[in-house]
Simulated assay, not measured.
Amino acid sequence: MNECYYDKQIDFFYNRSNNDIVDEWTGTKLVIVLGVGTFFCLFIFFSNSLVIAAVIKNRKFHFPFYYLLANLAAADFFAGIAYVYLMFNTGPATKTLTINRWFLRQGLLDTSLTASLTNLLVIAVERHMSVTSMRIHSNLTKKRVTLLILFVWVIAIFMGAVPTLGWNCLCDISSCSSLAPVYSRSYLIFWTVSNLVTFFIMVVVYLRIYMYVKRKTSVLSPHMSGSISRRRTPMKLMKTVMAVLGAFIVCWTPGLVVLLLDGLNCTQCNVQHVKRWFLLLALLNSAMNPIIYSYKDEDMYSTMKRMIFCFLQERNPEGQPSRIPSMVLSQSDTGSRYMEDNGNRGPACNKSSS
């Protein structure tokens, strides 16, 4: 009968796996990693909060696609929380962790990845529904969108808790991995392969949708009534999603490949010395998404710019005018005019607006 090691500290497993990476997270290297990580985490909290607030505030965004986009921003915000917890429990502090605290540290990271990945998959379903029905937005009700969002987080939390629920090597120490010395190598293989396969499926789905939208738009465009910007909206939304998916795959694939090699027990791959940098690359993804939203979506950029301006205006000393300069409310700035477009005229910055 195999012996179980529930009462051991985490350093027992690190020492047994010959993982000396903990000792290298000291001095200048640790300061650099923590400094860069802190900067990105602060930016993640600010920018993704801005995206969520923009979706709530701008009535143009009250559609299933943007609700799911806000949920993706919430997943990125959660990733920032996971990285903050990691920063306070890494380096020399790793050796002092109990098994449960280490599971929590890794579970938060796994949950954030699964939440982002599942949310992208749900967005693919929503985009497919809207494209096949020849609509800019799908006809999903708010109740169904809410259920989809709950489904995303249930799946994410479950996947993050799987090792804690029993798929670990605490009672089969010979199967422990090197990078995650309490995880079973079989679990690492399952987790990384399932994520990589999901990447591939989503790329195929999004490419098919993209080609379908492009073909239909080119065929129907001469016969469609309405403004040019409205006819281009489906393609603009697809380009936003494709950019987000591309950034996600670029930032997460290297780390997943490294974990897969570790799961396959590749002793010659030298995976330990690149783990920290691939982790920072994954962190970068949560900071990139809000930039992609604002760059690819003019309405999102305009709304975020307006919110920042209003926030700064409220913090300004007395005597400043309450109206936004005309250059901010220019005719080209369509997103900043959403209140007028919806018949809700009012001051440029209104504390009671929602």
Rank of each mutant, 00 (worst) to 15 (best):
L150Y: 08
K305S: 13
I149S: 06
N342D: 11
V131M: 08
K95C: 06
L148F: 10
E314G: 14
S221G: 03
G226E: 05
S17L: 02
T267I: 03
S184E: 04
D11Q: 05
L104Q: 12
F278E: 04
I249Y: 06
T111A: 06
M235R: 12
M327D: 11
K60T: 03
A287N: 01
F40L: 14
L207H: 15
S133P: 03
L147C: 06
S336L: 01
A74K: 00
I10N: 00
S330F: 05
A287K: 00
S133V: 07
V152N: 13
T94R: 00
V193R: 09
W252A: 03
H62Y: 07
M129C: 10
L329W: 03
T217L: 15
Y187F: 15
G335A: 12
V244G: 01
A70G: 14
L108P: 05
S130C: 08
E318M: 10
P64C: 09
L117C: 05
Y301L: 04
G27P: 07
L312E: 15
N18P: 04
F43K: 04
N89E: 01
T164Y: 11
D333P: 00
T164N: 04
S133K: 15
T28P: 07
S47L: 09
L280P: 01
G166S: 13
I201R: 09
L237A: 03
C176S: 09
S133W: 06
L283E: 11
S186K: 10
A73L: 12
D297F: 00
T334H: 05
K305H: 07
F63N: 09
S177D: 02
Y338R: 02
A287S: 09
S294T: 09
T118I: 15
W167L: 11
S17M: 10
F39D: 03
K305D: 06
F151G: 13
M134G: 05
N100I: 13
G160M: 03
P163S: 10
I136S: 11
R230H: 09
R208I: 15
I173S: 04
A75H: 00
K216I: 13
Q268C: 10
Y5A: 09
L68P: 01
K236V: 13
E340C: 05
N100D: 14
R185H: 02
L165A: 14
Y66W: 14
F12T: 12
N2H: 14
D297L: 07
G343F: 05
H62T: 02
D172N: 12
N2F: 10
V22I: 13
S178D: 05
L109P: 00
L34I: 07
D23V: 03
K351M: 10
S116Y: 02
V257D: 02
G346P: 06
F103W: 12
P234L: 08
F39S: 06
P325C: 02
A93V: 10
L264V: 06
I56S: 07
K275A: 05
T217N: 15
R59T: 04
Y338P: 01
M339S: 03
L237S: 08
Y183G: 01
L30C: 07
F190W: 11
P325V: 04
K214W: 14
Y5R: 13
V182N: 07
Y183I: 04
L179P: 00
Y66D: 05
M307Q: 14
F39C: 11
K214T: 14
F77K: 00
N195W: 03
Y83R: 00
W102F: 13
